[in-house]
Write a protein that binds this DNA or RNA. Structure first.
Lengths: 156, 156
DNA sequence: GCTTCGGCTGCACAGGATGTCCAGTGAAAT
DNA sequence: ATTTCACTGGACATCCTGTGCAGCCGAAGC
């Protein structure tokens, strides 16, 4: 849909201080409350802002280990594999990709040792031919969106 | 920190309907408002809930293509590479990993053609020896946390 | 040059939610 | 038996929300 500079500033502001309301945001941005309200409605309607759900930290839940697994799937068993992986809570994300592997999934585990259990649970399914796992050591750039928002706002 | 069943139900509720407030949540959960408020404070203080920032959809911003790139880094140039990648808005996430590649990053682009530009920007840096890119076709399991929350709540 | 239109402003109003107390109750731990 | 702790239900003042409206302005079209 495309966003302008005010949209970008609004999103950035909400990202930094999610608990401020519409009124406070309008004060910070120097515009009328109705404007912020209209912009927010438009951003939500346009799908730019999907929602304001809680951002839960798996580490704080007791799952401090993250890994990415590249899976090779037996031809035709894709749907079953997806259903299987969707049923594993430790699978936080699953993509089908081009390239050597057929799928890429993000896993979490209680420990490096526990990761073995998770991988066994993931791979213990007939449709999965091979799995290559990469354990995350550091996360220099945590999932972010603001730089992209600002670039999108700059390019109108 | 560990969460109980009420914490789990609260997080799930907030994930489904983020705009409900503390009062409405207390009504839905059948507990007093003060209880919900105390739980929320504890979850935020304990780091389980990091915040309620806006969930922005890159596709709606004009970046519908997602890819994962595995990077091989020249020994000792890790820090520079991180700084370089942190400066690229299309890099949404960066991890250092064990295994063959040294880093794994999530990229977005305006189109498959545009992805070439992004990859050039990412790889156009002396510290990066080799890059393998996997373009995301489907996303059967979008980033989620609720199943893990429920498991954590079940296991106390 | 003039009109139309969309977006922004400033204001108003009613209804509710929030933050913050507090005393009372029950259950679990010591 | 006593202490501790979380939850309850209520209270209060303050503030925010959703909504509507009239007026203003610049940009686009005629």
């Amino acid at each position: 849909m495309g966003i302008d500079a005010l949209d970008g500033r609004l999103i950035t502001l909400l990202d930094l201080e999610p608990r401020i309301g519409v009124l406070e945001a309008s004060r910070r941005l120097g515009v009328a409350r109705g404007t912020v309200q209209a912009r927010l409605d438009r951003l939500r309607a346009g799908g730019v802002i999907r929602g304001f759900g809680p951002q839960v930290d798996p580490a704080a839940l007791g799952y401090p280990v993250t890994a990415f697994a590249t899976l090779e799937i037996k031809q035709g068993l894709g749907p079953q594999v997806r259903a299987h992986l969707a049923g594993v809570p430790e699978v936080l994300e699953l993509h089908t990709t081009t390239g050597q592997g057929d799928m890429l999934c993000r896993l979490v585990a209680r420990s490096n040792a526990d990761l073995q259990r998770v991988i066994d649970k993931v791979v213990g399914f007939e449709g999965i031919v091979r799995a290559a796992t990469a354990i995350v050591m550091e996360n220099p750039v945590p999932l972010r969106i603001i730089p992209l928002v600002e670039q999108a706002a700059r390019e109108q």
